[in-house]
């Protein structure tokens, strides 16, 4: 079973242009009911019916976990993508009915922390907005370091600085500013947990620096806004269903399995939660593992694949589905 089996019918209650590339969308339950509870860092999967194509993209909730009458997400427009974010920007208007999944959290605050150190890059700010509301209410010390390419693209920078004051430090590339990770991570009191969400390079630098300084792995948390990578089309045999399917160039394996009507688990659709883990029955070729779930050994074994983000190149791939 997957989170998206129980979709919640919502109505778009508001659409706000935050800046030229980012829009905020607010959703209310169609019946005005309370929406499911969530904690800071959770995301929902938004289903988009785009002219016959069904798209499902995960977006982090940025609204306060203490407000259950509506959810808010912010979407960065990605013109090179397959169209999910473009659809949100161009087609979604107030009053429209949509379906969303219940929230899932793969990036929650560790409540044992004595302090939360949050590092955001660009649109990676969204989960932290909800987390800060939570940490603020719980009275746990927190600090946000938010980097953006330019002042004009730095969504919510001013309002966050206003709301959380000294807790927030901002950096804009076009002002020649940047986070000094070495200094930042060398000056945190014992019991601090660090959280990073942003571009791949930023996440890597934070994880590497923390590890090098001796931070225990359990104190370092990150979330990639990973989109399923595109590639060459490939054929897959689904052993239990007894069918062959084709994964299109711009389709993920998960999407192709879903389109065939074959049941498959999923949650994050971004290679992080482990829900879609599928056994490989036969593999004559190379699996392009794009997930953050399997370890090196599991990858090398060619016995498991994460269909939400991983692809295949070769003669034959047979899955236990």
């Amino acid at each position: 079973m997957s989170a998206s089996d129980h979709l919640i019918p919502v109505v778009v209650s508001n659409v706000v242009e935050v800046n030229p590339i980012i829009k905020r969308f607010e959703f209310k339950h169609v019946n005005g009911d309370e929406l499911p509870a969530f904690s800071g860092g959770a995301h929902i999967v938004v289903e988009m019916l785009d002219d016959g194509t069904k798209r499902k993209n995960p977006y982090s909730l940025m609204s306060s976990p203490f407000e259950r009458d509506q959810y808010a997400i912010s979407v960065r427009r990605d013109d090179t993508g397959r169209g999910g974010s473009k659809f949100m920007h161009e087609q979604v208007r107030p009053g429209m009915e949509m379906k969303i999944s219940a929230p899932v959290n793969l990036f929650s605050l560790d409540l044992r922390a004595k302090k939360h150190l949050m590092i955001a890059g660009g649109i990676g700010i969204t989960p932290f907005i909800a987390q800060m509301a939570q940490a603020d209410k719980l009275g746990v010390p927190f600090e946000l370091h938010y980097a953006a390419r330019s002042v004009s693209q730095a969504a919510y920078m001013d309002s966050l600085a206003d709301r959380f004051g000294d807790h927030v430090s901002c950096y804009c590339d076009d002002q020649g500013e940047g986070v000094d990770f070495e200094t930042l991570l060398s000056s945190q009191p014992l019991g601090t947990h660090v959280y990073v969400c942003g571009p791949k390079g930023m996440i890597e630098r934070v994880v590497e620096t923390a590890t090098h300084l001796g931070w225990p792995a359990a104190h370092v948390h990150f979330e990639h806004f990973l989109a399923p990578p595109v590639g060459e089309p490939f054929e897959v045999h689904l052993a239990k269903a007894g069918i062959d399917i084709t994964v299109g160039a711009e389709q993920s394996l998960l999407e192709a399995v879903e389109a065939s009507g074959t049941p498959i688990n999923c949650m994050c659709r971004g290679g992080a939660c482990g829900q879609c883990e599928t056994a490989v029955v036969a593999c004559d070729g190379e699996i392009m593992h794009n997930d953050h779930w399997l370890d090196e050994e599991q990858r090398a074994s060619k016995q498991l694949i994460m269909p939400c983000v991983s692809r295949f190149r070769g003669k034959r791939l047979e899955l236990d589905l």
Partner: peptide
């Protein structure tokens, strides 16, 4: 000593 120590302490 540990009350002044920083993350990365072993």
């Amino acid at each position: 000593w540990l009350s002044d120590a920083k993350m990365g302490t072993q």
